[in-house]
Computed example of a mutant assay.
Amino acid sequence: MPSINSRSETLETRFKARPLPARAIVPASYWREMQKPSKRWVHLALPGEELIGMAAVLQRGRAEDGTEYTCYSLVMQEAAAHIADVHDRMPVLVPQDFAGEWLTSEAPAVELIDAARAAAFPLAERVIARPQGSASTSAPSLFQTAPPGGRETGSQDEPGGSGPGSQPRV
């Protein structure tokens, strides 16, 4: 896949009456978007940074050395009205009671994506946007040193989200 994001509308057009290919749910506690024109990172999460699932489609690939891998692309939709000033798109959030359907349904792509957006609506309405720091004039640090006995993790300033070059925080 050429992108980490796939517009839900594009998937509907591409697959129409056929089922979507392999799907996944990407767990995250939040994602980030860069608000324009201020170039300020905005942290988007459910209250209490409750674990969320983001709808994704999968595709197999092969590296130049022949190693096979699986990559994913988050399924994106129009942003909920209360956060549309941050970014015009957001991931399709998958509530627990819709996870099985998202992962296994053989319904036509149009029907499944419509059902996913409808199931996501209550979660999307609960998303809270919190601006992070001042306007970005330099690249934020991507890693911090792990505590003794711990593992390296992304920093709190890590750019993540659904825009180009961004990733959800897992």
Rank of each mutant, 00 (worst) to 15 (best):
P21A: 05
A24S: 09
A24H: 01
A24R: 06
V26Q: 12
P27K: 11
S29L: 02
S29H: 05
Y30D: 14
E33D: 06
E33F: 00
Q35I: 03
W41K: 14
H43I: 05
H43E: 03
A45W: 12
A45L: 13
E49Q: 05
G53H: 00
A56K: 08
A56P: 08
V57M: 00
R62P: 00
R62W: 04
D65E: 04
D65V: 02
E68D: 11
Y69S: 12
L74V: 13
Q77N: 11
A79C: 09
A80Y: 13
A81W: 11
D88V: 05
D88Y: 06
D88A: 07
D88N: 10
M90A: 07
V92M: 02
L93K: 04
P95K: 07
A99W: 07
G100S: 08
W102S: 05
W102M: 07
T104S: 03
E106D: 10
A107Y: 00
A107G: 00
A109D: 05
V110H: 06
L112H: 05
I113D: 07
I113A: 07
A118H: 08
A119F: 12
A120W: 03
E125V: 00
I128Y: 02
P140F: 07
Q144P: 00
T145W: 02
A146H: 13
R151M: 10
T153P: 03
Q156W: 09
D157H: 08
D157N: 09
S162E: 04
S162H: 10
G163I: 00
G163H: 04
S166Q: 11
Q167Y: 09
V170T: 09
